[in-house]
């Protein structure tokens, strides 16, 4: 397959960015978007040019390190799949593919396709944690959790933290990410004990760096972990609950 790549190049966070155009003549259908970038970089390095900086790690769809915007859609054309699982077979031969960093005010570009997504981590730091020190937990078998709650918690806990939801959102909102965490921790036995303070802290930190949710629902399509839209309801549920129930739990 022949593909024309328009790739965002940006030297540093403060530098002007621009698209550069490259041609790949031997792309193959089974390549992922990341492997296509690998191919491009081989070509660039062979010509003595600097390769395009982009992030990836596990390439099994679980680490959340990768994330680029392909033709205006985070990760790529297929819904609910990370860049490492987005295959070229979804593109036409001879097509132009525009690859740029995940876009959002909360994700400043570090270099080329690499963005700084630590804003999401600060939401976690603010309260996405459970205050149990090593060794102090009681017998996990003694705390009964229904099968349904465990499964439901895992549906939300599946978030890989890639940031596609923020970038997909025209508002740069991190509601899906935050809600997934809130919903997950509200369903597990120890997590329940600090639902209130967690909701207040996480929502406050989220509002510092990310935009409001207008329920455009682009995030739900982009999310590689298929986090459901109810995560967004969970943000408001937990925060409203914390507004009326002013205790820590």
């Amino acid at each position: 397959m022949r593909l024309i790549l328009e790739v965002w190049r940006q030297e540093s966070p403060t530098a002007e960015g621009r698209f550069t155009v490259h041609e790949i003549t031997d792309a193959r259908e089974e390549m992922s978007i990341l492997e296509l970038l690998d191919r491009l970089n081989h070509q660039l390095v062979d010509n003595g040019e600097e390769p395009v900086a982009f992030e990836s790690d596990c390439r099994e769809g679980i680490c959340g390190t990768c994330g680029v915007d392909v033709n205006g859609v985070p990760h790529g054309p297929r819904d609910n799949a990370p860049a490492c699982f987005q295959h070229i077979r979804a593109l036409r031969d001879g097509a132009t593919v525009r690859i740029e960093p995940l876009r959002a005010l909360g994700f400043p570009v570090i270099r080329d396709l690499i963005v700084d997504r630590t804003g999401l981590d600060r939401i976690i730091q603010a309260g996405g944690t459970v205050a149990v020190d090593a060794g102090t937990a009681p017998d996990a078998d003694a705390l009964l959790v229904t099968h349904a709650d465990a499964e439901s918690a895992l549906d939300f806990a599946a978030c890989i933290g890639c940031g596609a939801c923020v970038s997909a959102c025209p508002n740069g909102s991190a509601h899906l990410f935050t809600g997934a965490k809130l919903a997950h921790l509200a369903l597990v036995p120890h997590g329940k004990k600090e639902r209130g303070r967690r909701a207040r802290a996480m929502v406050a930190q989220m509002e510092h760096e990310f935009g409001p949710c207008s329920q455009i629902r682009e995030c739900v399509l982009a999310c590689p972990a298929s986090i459901p839209i109810t995560a967004i309801a969970a943000v408001n549920k937990e925060r409203l609950r914390a507004a009326f129930w002013t205790r820590d739990n």
């Binding site: 205006g72 959002a104 005010l105 025209p170 740069g172 935009g211 399509l221």
Partner: peptide
């Protein structure tokens, strides 16, 4: 706040919710 948070690169390709974006 939404305009500010999306940064200088507005998202153009959107699949759903014409009603949401035209509120």
């Amino acid at each position: 706040r939404a305009r500010k948070a999306r940064g200088p690169h507005a998202r153009k390709i959107l699949v759903n919710r014409i009603s949401a974006r035209t509120m």
